[in-house]
Amino acid sequence: MSNDNIIRGVLAAWISDEVGELAVVGELRRTSAGYSRENWVFDANWGGVTHDLIVRRDPLGSVLNTDRRVEVAVLEALAAGPVPVPRIRWTDLGGVRLGRPALVMDLVPGVCDGFVLNGPRPLRERVALAHSLYDHLAALHTLDTSRFPLPAPEGQIALAAVDHWERELSQVALDPQPELALVFAWLRANAPAVSRTCLVHGDFKPGNALLDGHGWSAVLDWETAHIGDPHEDLGWVTNPLRQREHRIPGAWEPEDLLERWSSRTGWTVDPAAVHWWQVLANAKLAVIVATGARAFVEGRLDRIHQAPVRIHQLLLDQIGA
């Protein structure tokens, strides 16, 4: 029996238990999107109605070690808006059904295109898409954090982030990383103070949103969400390494994004903090690459990761080394 047929059978049994009647799973296929989760889209029929669904399962190996419970908690808290998110149907955090933690959600219509802002659509349309996407970022930042059952950050947020990613690196690196030791030392020496906390998405980008026609139908991939400094997301979305995803040259530059975010939130942007979080973003990306490299070498990931020398070069520039 093929892997897809096994998954299909398990999903049919799972859904039948949940809805209390026989459910039949029809077409099912694994999607190529999603580097930190295994995703299958499928349709299931029960009660005479066909439902379009997606199941997300923790992989054996990934580029990112995250907690499924965080994603569920945030999605449930955001179900009432204002940021559009997929509706969770059922969760299996213990991994009883599919061997690893998994959740079933409604399949939201739309296309996942990480480079849509620099795609073939007319400039005016792309700028409008940028406005509406990053307005979602501003909206989630201004939500009352008490809505989210997430731990409050302890101590100095910026230094805690450095501790976290340095610890991750020590656990996953296949070989020594003196470049990152230099960068982490710079991050420690220059850590900004935090003026406010909010819900941070952690991986906000066009590729983590669904586009349905001319509008965004959902913001996805909340497994890295946490309570933190809004400058963390601002550094992530203005990171020069990711400019093909976030910028439209001459029409939607980082300063445009920050100005619009500031007007939407009513908060002032600290440029030094944005820069610091850009450096942290690239250190984090280097750790993510190291995580993927280890998972590949150990046979747990189907993608090959080369040493991130381009990220090292950019980091050296960013810290003035």
Binding site: R29, T31, S32, A33, Y35, V41, L107, V111, C112, D113, G114, F115, V116, P178, E179, L182, G207, R244, E245, Q306, A307, P308, V309, R310, H312, Q313, L316, A321
Partner: peptide, 23 residues
């Protein structure tokens, strides 16, 4: 660090991400 990045023998290409997934 800068010179070793320039000399690194396995060339790297900018990551372009997964193709648009319509489903």
């Amino acid at each position: 660090f800068r010179e070793r990045a320039d000399r690194y023998p396995i060339p790297t290409r900018p990551w372009r991400g997964p193709v648009a997934d319509t489903t």
